[in-house]
Each structure stands twice: as structure tokens, then as C-alpha cells.
Amino acid sequence: MAHLKPEQFRFDGSTDFVLADQPTKIDDLYDDKEHYELLLRELTSQLNELQETMFAHNRYGLVTIFQAMDAAGKDSTIQHVFSGVNPLGLRVHSFKRPSEQELDHDFLWRNIINLPERGTIGIFNRSYYEEVLVVKVHPEILTKTQRLPDDRIADLDKVWKKRYKDLRHFETYLHHNGFPVLKFFLNVSKREQAERLIDRIEDPSKNWKFDDQDVVERGFWKQYMQVYEEAINATATQKAPWYVIPADDKKNMRLIVAKILADELKSLKMEYPKVNKRQQKNLQELIAVIQNE
């Protein structure tokens, strides 16, 4: 994977982002299944070591966000990429439709209470970005379900602009406090999504994954592509970039995501706590105590 350059998938707001120009499939990064598994093991091993260093250092936490259309592979990517990481260092949360309790709070609240503590990696399967994606495609969710004052939603264009601004500020705030944010959009093609949805129907072991609403939402594909493009353009920053990952090949997708995560963790100034000479002497003395028991 020496030729893999994660920056080709990175968008930080310095240039205009055009979703239609982004590939959903690239050349394979692996030779065969065995080679893929070897590469992924190497990357997950790196992630585990880096997370252990982060835990011991206890100054940073990492927030990772996975957004995508249905059947793009969010669940399997999270499962495979983090499979080798000590689960004690992970905080995974999947955001579904807001509950009654969540609707009684601001739109960031349910994400804030699930943020990771220092030393851990937070994994958001969907996130507060649903508020400028699904809700923007279906504004009736905002006007009829969410409980904002009428004067706050009189102009929906202003609502979206304010939410983009809130998200930029929130992610900058997290970065300033030692919690960098990595945002992944898993970019699957409409054709590939169709094949995966059909597979969920035809394979009895996958029927549980299928939701009739997935087909309904597929009918809004063009609108979703537009709001994703708008959201990425509005919220991609140097401190909280978006990574748009080709998702038609799940193996490639997992390798790219794992590589980006490893590179991000390596960029943090982390180290194991150093022991001074007095502490070293005490530790050596304890060896003798243990051996003499």
C-alpha cells in the first residue's frame, strides 16, 4: 500500500468539493484475499498500539464519524477496522431516529453525552450530520417533529446555514480541547447499493438488515447527493476534514479508512509516561520483593 495517498480523499475546505467528481471505486490496493487480510492485520495492529499509547498518554481522545447512504458498509467497516483494537479503548455509538428524550434537547445533545473520554476513540455510526442530511431532504422532520420555536424555523435556508456554523464551531472546540474529529463519507454508487439491497432480500441470513424505508430513501438519491455535497463544502475545515472514501469495494474501503486513522493517531504528539530515576529505583526494588515472595 505504499502507493496509497490518503490525502487524495481528504477535503478541508481549501477547494470546492464536487461529489460527482469523486470515484466510488479505485484500483485494488491488495493482490488477493490473503494479501488484503495481511494488510488489514498490519494496520489494525498499528491502531491498537497507537490507541494504547493514547490511553497511557491520557491527553487526547479521537472522534470518528461515519456517514453514508444505506448499505454503504458503515457497520462492517467499523467492525473490521477496529477488530484488533482493545475494546476498552473504544466507545461505539449508533445514532437512530431521535427518541422523545433526545427531541427535548438541542440537536447536538445526544452526541455530546456520547463523546469519548481522553485516551479513547469514539466511533459514531451516523451523527449530528443527520440534522443537515436526512432532515434537509425531509424538512417536515424539522417543522413537525422537532420542537424548535416557530420563529427559529421560519426561514429554513437560515436554519441550515446556522447548523453548518454550529457544527464547524463545535468541531473546532473539540479540536482545541484535544479531541480531533475525523469524518468519513463512504461513497457508494447507486448501482452497488441496489445490488447490496437485493442481496439483503435474497439472503435469509441478511433479511434482518433490510428495512423497507431503505428503498423509500433510495428514491431521494439525487437529493441526498446534493445535501452531502453541500454539507461537506460547508463543514470541511483544516481541523476537521472530511474523507470521501470509495465504497463500492469494501476491502479497499476498510484499508483506506484504517490507514487514515493510523496516520491521524501518529500525527498526535503522544508518548508513554516517563519514569524518573527515583521511580525507576523503586521499581527495581519491587522486582526483588516479588521474586522473594
Results as ranks from 00 to 15, higher is better:
M1L: 09
M1G: 09
L4K: 14
L4E: 04
K5F: 13
E7N: 10
Q8W: 09
Q8N: 15
Q8T: 12
F9C: 10
R10A: 10
D16A: 13
D21P: 03
T24H: 02
K25W: 06
I26V: 15
D27S: 15
L29D: 12
K33Q: 14
K33R: 15
L38T: 05
R41H: 10
R41L: 11
E49C: 04
Q51S: 05
N58W: 03
R59K: 14
Y60I: 02
G61L: 03
L62I: 14
V63P: 03
M69S: 05
A71K: 07
T77F: 08
I78K: 06
Q79F: 07
H80I: 01
G84I: 12
V92H: 11
H93N: 12
F95S: 01
F95M: 02
E102G: 03
L103Y: 02
L103S: 01
D104K: 04
H105D: 06
N111L: 14
E117I: 02
E117F: 04
G119P: 00
T120I: 08
I121G: 00
F124Q: 05
R126S: 01
E131S: 00
E131M: 02
V132K: 04
V134H: 01
K136I: 03
P139A: 06
P139G: 04
I141K: 09
I141N: 07
I141H: 08
L142W: 06
T145Q: 10
Q146S: 08
L156R: 09
D157V: 07
D157S: 11
W160N: 07
R163E: 04
K165Y: 09
L167S: 04
Y173D: 13
L174A: 04
H176C: 10
H176Q: 15
N177A: 13
F179Q: 12
A194T: 09
L197R: 11
L197F: 08
I198Y: 05
I198S: 11
R200G: 10
R200W: 07
R200M: 07
I201Y: 12
P204N: 12
P204E: 05
K206I: 02
N207K: 15
D211Y: 06
D214G: 00
V215K: 07
G219V: 00
F220H: 14
E229S: 01
E230F: 05
I232N: 01
A234M: 06
T235Y: 06
T237W: 06
W242E: 11
W242P: 06
V244P: 11
A247Q: 04
D248F: 09
K251M: 14
V257R: 08
L261S: 10
L261A: 14
L261W: 13
A262Q: 07
D263N: 11
K266Q: 13
M270G: 08
E271L: 05
Q279P: 01
Q280M: 15
L283K: 08
L286Y: 15
A288T: 14
A288R: 12
A288V: 13
Q291M: 11
